[in-house]
Design a protein around this nucleic acid. Sequence first.
DNA 1: ACTATTAATCGTAATATTGCAATATATAAA
DNA 2: TTTATATATTGCAATATTACGATTAATAGT
Lengths: 108, 108
Amino acid sequence: MGISKTEHFSENQNEIATAAKALGHPARIAIMEYLMSVDTCICGDIVNELPLAQPTISQHLKELKNAGLIKGSIEGNAICYCIDETCLEKIMTYFSAMAAQLKSKNCC
Amino acid sequence: MGISKTEHFSENQNEIATAAKALGHPARIAIMEYLMSVDTCICGDIVNELPLAQPTISQHLKELKNAGLIKGSIEGNAICYCIDETCLEKIMTYFSAMAAQLKSKNCC
DNA sequence: ACTATTAATCGTAATATTGCAATATATAAA
DNA sequence: TTTATATATTGCAATATTACGATTAATAGT
């Protein structure tokens, strides 16, 4: 139906899935990488960096923001976007734990 | 258009995005967690574990397999699914590097 | 051969995502 | 206050995803 049965899964499972979903698009990965690469986060120029129209970038930024992966603060005329470390660290920890746990198994 | 402009992004960006996308659904996270939790990977019973119909699970398994996150081998009548460590390790490394790089920055 | 079991595939309905042109909003600069 | 700049929102078309009933395929057990 195109609608996920989120209520059947744990809060943690939904949280990880939401973050992963937000990262599940090359443009959004590119945005994250760009935000990493610039020291200052005066970031309206993502539009110039990526081969997508301004409304599309805006939409991708919104999704990353909704997922808690980035945060934006008004900087005069422009908006300063940057990565939200908390969320990224959470994902990292989750997959790190999974990878570590895997090593003690011998699958097919 | 519902179609991603994947050709405009790097191979690595697309790879990470594909893996993240595959993990971007609570049911697929639940499947991964289940595959982690069972020592042996005699795994047809995912259907009994999750609140989804058999064709739906099958579809989710297919997506995880396409993304390289799991692999399946025929075990007589049933099929033995288990996590593909290589791919998971790759994601882990990627986000780990990102998280580490973040610590040397002071954003807004 | 017949029947159960296991899992994939097909078809389809409901909904979500992606992308952009056009437009709106809001601040800065003149 | 007019004008430029920066970003968000709206509306829409094309396509993708999610879910499942019905069916198929393939092996196991009898």
